[in-house]
């Protein structure tokens, strides 16, 4: 793991796929916390807006070997050669050296979407419509997070607003650091089965440290060398096989959905038969 930054804290996350029930509480909590707007119904999985999306994985096996799992996919907060940061002409996205969080500054964003093209995880979303909510809902916005305008890119920032509130509270109490339990992203707080773990990846005293160094941990597209700070945990070989090769796509609109459906099919073939790739190449 590269240590090419001088972060005082390196926030990261571990998501236990074996525990995730796919209830979607993390998605909803994230949208409520961050004032994510409600695009009109034509917004599907391609043009919809969310900072975390739960994908359904299936091993495509018949009964009784049929298995389903769920993959919450959010910005992976890459720590090395961060693709979105390197392509942004506006410096609208950057790595916070204090925390390792890949931030997004919507006011600077031009909407060129280079970052979306560069992101290998498809974890960035473009606001295709004016931000609208049902009438009167402005009065229940989270006062700590500004709504974004149409034409900018949005993504997970580990609930940066919550960190700011925690910092303010710590400052009011004369502290310069925040305690571990003072800052928790909304998705973690909402997960009913405790599948999401958050903390400082460099702190050996935290449970997260043991989780990400355990045998069940892996990261998406590790071969790209982007050093994501989101770790996934699973003991199920078919899940690890499936996710080792990429990220899943929605099954409903395979031709219009993202990412590449051919890649998904390929993954499913591999999930059924891990040696298929070798045979194909030979």
């Amino acid at each position: 793991m590269s240590r090419n930054t001088t972060h005082r804290v390196r926030y990261g996350m571990a998501i236990d796929i074996d525990r995730c029930t796919g209830c979607g509480a993390c998605m909803v909590a994230c949208a409520v916390e961050n004032n994510v707007s409600v695009p009109p119904p034509p917004a599907g999985d391609r043009k919809g807006l969310t900072w975390i999306r739960v994908y359904r994985l299936h091993n495509e096996r018949p009964y009784p070997e049929s298995r389903t799992a769920y993959l919450p996919l959010l910005c992976q907060h890459c720590g090395h050669h961060t693709p979105c940061v390197s392509v942004c002409p506006q410096h609208a996205t950057d790595i916070d050296p204090e925390t390792g969080i890949v931030s997004q500054i919507p006011e600077r964003c031009l909407g060129c979407r280079y970052c979306m093209a560069a992101c290998p995880y498809h974890a960035r979303y473009f606001t295709w419509w004016d931000p609208v909510w049902p009438a009167g809902m402005e009065e229940i916005f989270n006062p700590d997070v500004s709504p974004r305008m149409r034409g900018v890119v949005e993504k997970c920032n580990f609930c940066h607003g919550r960190r700011q509130v925690a910092l303010q509270r710590a400052a009011a109490e004369g502290r310069r650091q925040i305690r571990d339990d003072e800052y928790r992203p909304a998705c973690l707080e909402a997960c009913p089965v405790g599948a999401i773990h958050f903390g400082n990846l460099d702190d050996p005293k935290q449970e997260l440290y043991d989780l990400v160094h355990g045998e069940r941990a892996f990261r998406l597209l590790e071969r790209l060398g982007t050093e994501p700070k989101i770790y996934y945990l699973s003991s199920q070989p078919w899940v690890r096989r499936l996710l080792h090769n990429g990220i899943p796509a929605s099954r409903r609109h395979p031709d219009g959905g993202r990412p590449d459906v051919a890649a998904l099919r390929h993954q499913q073939v591999l999930a059924r038969d891990p040696r298929a790739e070798e045979r194909r190449r030979s």
Binding site: V28, P41, G48, L49, R53
Partner: peptide, 9 residues
């Protein structure tokens, strides 16, 4: 809208 977009259900 999140359920609709993600096809989670």
């Amino acid at each position: 809208k999140l359920y609709r977009e993600s096809h989670l259900r």
